[in-house]
Every structure is written in C-alpha cells, then in structure tokens.
Write a protein that binds this DNA or RNA. Sequence first.
RNA 1: GGCGUGGUAGCUCAGCUGGUUAGAGCGCAGGAUUCAUAAUCCUGAGGUCGGGAGUUCAAGUCUCCCCCACGCUACCA
Length: 681
Amino acid sequence: MSFKRFTITAALPYANGPVHIGHLAGVYVPADIYVRYMRLQEKDVLFICGSDELGVPITLRAKKEGISPQDVVDRYHAMIAKSFEEFGISFDHYSRTSSPVHWETSSEFFKKLYQDGVFTEESSKQYFDEESQQFLADRYIQGTCPNCGFAAAYGDQCEHCGSSLSPTDLKQPKSMLSGKPPVLKETKHWYLPMDQYENWLRKYILEDHREWKTNVYGQCKSWIDQGLKPRAMTRDLDWGVPVPLEEAKGKVLYVWFDAPIGYISATKEWAKANNRNWEPYWKDSDTRLIHFIGKDNIVFHCIIFPVILKAHGDYILPDNVPANEFLNLEGDKISTSRNWAVWLHEFLEELPGKQDVLRYVLCANAPETKDNDFTWKEFQARNNNELVAIFGNFINRAVVLTHKYFDGQVPPMGKTNDLDTEILDRLAEYPVQIGGSLENFKFREALNQMMDVARMGNKYLADTEPWKVIKQDKQRVGTILNLSLQIAANLSILADPFLPRTCEKLRAILGIDKLKWADSGKQNLLQTGNQLENAALLFEKIEDSVVEQQIEKLKASKLENNPDQQVQTRPQKPEITFDDFLKLDIRIGKVVSAEKVAKSKKLLKLVVDTGLEERVIVSGIAQNYTPEQAVGQTVTVLLNLMPRKIMGIESQGMILMAEDADGRFGFLQPDKEVKPGGEVS
RNA sequence: GGCGUGGUAGCUCAGCUGGUUAGAGCGCAGGAUUCAUAAUCCUGAGGUCGGGAGUUCAAGUCUCCCCCACGCUACCA
C-alpha cells in the first residue's frame, strides 16, 4: 500500500518528572530522525506529542510536595516542552492532556463507545474514605502486609517484602488521606471487554503485521495467547477526565484510556492553529499511523488503543509500533526516584551546543534490539573518534584545501578517472540505502551508513593526495576537490535527519540552501565558482575533564541517595519489655545444605545446624545467595518461631537477615567464630 | 513456574528462507602520510558464534535440554 500522509506520534512523557536520555534514546530521537527524513522526502507528515498529565502518581507527588496536581504538571510540562524545543525534537505540535480539547475529545470518545454498548458494567467493593468522601486508589491505602508484617505496605504492593497485594489483603488498612480506616463500598466501573476482541487482534497483529519488530510482535503474541481480560476504563479518582455519565459522578477515565486519545486531541489543536483539517490524519485509510514508544508501552499501543479505535469504528489503526528497549546508565537502570539519570534539561545547560552529539550517541547506541548502556566514556569516544575525526575532519579537510588552492571557490570538475566514477557511483547509492534503513526503523544501521559517506570522503582524499598533485596538476586537484565538496554537500542532506544543527552549519559553510532528499546522490549540488565560507569546526573534541565531571556528578547523586533512603527508614516499633525479649530464642547456626525451592523465585530451603539438631528452614534469600554461597555460612536463627508451611515445606525457624537500603540482604554473623548453638542475648 | 526478547571478536552490533576460510564500526598493535581538531589511510592480531545433545552431505542459522540478562505473567504466602 502506498500512503499519502503520515501521522507519527511519540509516547506522551508523564508529567511527574523531567525527560532523561532513556526517553530520548528509546522514543524521541528515533521518532525525530524518522520525521525529519520524511519531511526531506516532502511527505505529508505530522509529528504529534504532548505531556501526559493525569493519573495517580501525579496526585501522589502533589500530595508529597503539598501542592496541587495542577502545579505539578504545570511545572513539568513547561520544563519538558522547553527542553524538547532546545534539544531539537521537531514536533509539529506538543500538547498536554489537561487541555480542554483533550477533555472534550476523550470524553466524546468514551460517550460514543458507551452509546454503542461497547462497555460492560461491573460493580465491586472498593475501599472508601468516609471523611474525605472518596474512593481510594490502591496506593492511597496503607496497612500491615499479610506476608511479612511490614506496617506501611501499600494497597498494591509491599515495599518491604516485594509481594504484590490487593488492598483488601492489608491488615488494619488506613486511608492515607484521613488516616482513618476506610470502609468497603460498592462502586461501578465500565470495562472494555478485551476478550471479545481476541480473534480480531490475532488477525490484526499476528497475521497482518508480521513485519513488526520481533520484540513487539513477541510481546503482543504473549499477551494475546495468555488470554485477554476485560479492563476497567474508569477509575474512582478526582484527577482526570470526568466520566461523561450522570451515574458516574466522581469518576474519571482511566489514564490509559485517555492518554493515547491525547494524540488525537493534539492533532485537533494543531489543525485549528494551522487552519487545517485533522480528520484525514486519523481517519483516511491512506494515512499511515506510527507510534514510537518504549517497551513498557507495548500493550497499551498495540492492544488496548487499537481495540478502542476499532470499537469506535471511524479510525485507522496503528500500522507500526516501533518500540525500543531500555537504556541503562553506567551499568545501572535509569531511575527517576533514585536520581540515576542524565536529565535533558541539565545536559542542555551543562553541555551547551552538544545537542547533535547526544543525538548521535543515543542513535548509535540506541536500544533497538535489547537494553543498552550509556556511558560518558562512550559519549566522549563517539564524539572524538567519530564525529570529530571522521565527519568533522572530512568536511574541514575539503574546505581548507579549497581555500588553500582555490580561494574558497568551488573549482570545476574536469575529466573524471575510474576512481572518481566509482566514488560518484557509490555516492548515488547511499540515499537509497540510508532511506531504506530508516524506513525499516533501523536507525543505528542508517547512521552508520551515513558515516560511511564521510569515511569514503576521507579515503578519497587519502587516495588522491591533492596536496601532492597540486605541484604538477592544479586542474586535477580541482576535480578532486569539487568531488569532495559534492560529497560534503550530500552529507548536508544525508546527515540532516540525524544531525540537524550540524547540517545547518555545514550548509552555511558550503553556501547552499537546504536541499531535499531527492537531491542527494547527485554530483552537482554545488555550482562551480560557489564561494565557501571559512572553515568552521563542526564538532569539538570533548576533554576528559568534561566527562569526568559528569561521572562525578552521577557518583555524587548515588551517595546522596543513600541518606534519602534512610529517610524512609521505618519508625521504631512500640516499646516491649525485657521479658518480651527473653521470649525469643536466638542462636547461631551453620548452613549444612541449601537448595532452591521449586516454583519459587525467592526461597531457599536450608538445612541448618542449630547446635541442638539440624533443622529445615525456608528463607527468602534466593535473590541474594545461591545455594552454593549459602552452604557453610554462619547464620543467626530465631529458633522458637512457630513452625509454618511455606510452599509445602515446613519451616522450623527463621534466619535473621540484615537489610541494606538498596534491598539487599546479608546474613547476620558474629565477628568472632561462634559454634552452632551459641546463644544471642 | 509459564511466555516473550536477547546472549556472535575487549566494547556496540550485522549475519535473509541452513552451504565456500563467521563480518562491520570503535578499541588495540604495526606501518604509510601530513591537507586536516596527532585527525586520516593501509595492514594485522583477536571469536570452539552462552553450554550440551540431536537432525543433516552441511548449523551461528533447524529441534530438544540447560545456563545467564531484561521484560510480561502466574502460583504460593
């Protein structure tokens, strides 16, 4: 099928924090490269994005900071929009899901599906805070974990033992709004019956879109094969788009219902501002809809959103969803809460003018097929060894030589020899190659091919040695330099999607206007006699000190984070008497044998010599110790704990562990050798 | 536990439906060169293609088992 227009979306950044390099590498850089390429092709392309500003985490953050959710999203929306702008992500429109157009669009969408009888209604009992008169999101409920006894477990998860919970599991639940115990109250929600769309999804994805990236296709298949369940499209919350039904007072649309519709709302805003019609971009079958996202969004963009669109009936469906994996930073997962990230707004401030370098590095090292790692050392190396040494250097050589021998005027191309012809032939092939790679979302490959053009230029100069030939044959040198400059002019097109600012500079040096992709591959982009500007460096070397400073900064944030986590240290438990303590029989033991408990991730079955006898104790330490590492360890054992069956094995006691701030466990061991049976008091 | 994706030179990755001595870039070593931000160009070293078994005339490429990483999901509590 040939498409007339292209609607390209990039995942909506969630407005509870700034944008970091992981977002850029996974979503915005590839999307922007793709869009810039399409524009050079003179395609009708629309690039849409915006801030996702609704949902529970934002309300939590607002609460924590003592400000309103609106304050939170205003702050981050402004910050994100500004840094995208400065970085050069060329959205046609950057919107936000708190905009009136979006509320209108998403609630109309809901209404249409409701009227068409798409939703199923279901009532269930949820916790309700009587004092503040509202239903409580899972995260708003705290209580005692039924699993480990941790007193401040959340309704969806216990952060102490990691088990996932449902709010009704909690003992002594408390509302985090009023601090009072919530009551169970009946509430009704509207569900999207995903299960009814299973066959349709199978055809849509598994049959009709076999070309999707393997990670995306595989993940979709996995979801579909596991069986889809109805999913609630409404929530009891006060921060979101109100459900447009009389009987749904106080309820809002589920963020993952409204967020993707945000792409449509943004398109409407763009159309209005530019006096265009938005509808063809979403409704004409000759429009190609492409979503750039990270892997965490696959299910929403490939399954839920298409079902919503299909249920509505008037809309086209995503034709491709090129999801990337994740980018790590210096070996660790990027984490907003732990401040382990390179934030875009800080990068722009601390390394001014280095936008294209970051684009280059993130593209060259994009997590296209698997998670990848960003290191500052690599950032420096790619800049110095590739951008400076290959790309910048080639341009500089060609321009400097032209100034030296021809006063900066493009010399005529005389008779071409075999080598020249070969170079010109290859030059004509690159646009096809690079374009092909880009169209297949192989950005790394495309970038590499683009750099090959510069490599070819360097080799051509080395092979023809104009600085030697000039002594005998100036005309020949003219041909060599003309050809070299034509390569440079071609680069100003071929590199433009990747390095837009650089190409602007390059065009200024060459004295040409912005060209189209269709011009690339040609050997006459520069006219003879065209006056060049003086050579200006396109890239500068990055010194060790610059990257060392960034590495130091990261190290510092790692240190800062520890005290931060200690803030979360649990408060002291209620006072006990000495007699209480005496009830505990704690002794030193030695691990005799250890094996993994089948079907469990965390549990090890240990046999421990307690001095009295050998006992079986099940312990949740498998993520910190292999059975081999555990055997032979001296451990501290709570001996007289009531035996309990864990996954079918009776555990006769408990191994005492010390837990670090990062969640790792360590055995509690005496600093001097103590034989099994030694008492702890 | 189930499912998905990945595991190929020091690093980052190509290797299509199985077929001659497994490739590229960066890094490294040696050489050439000086127009260029000591940049460039050439040459070279370096891989039992995660491990094991199997199918085949032939396997990185297919099948089975196992290990590791990341993700999704379930069960147990």
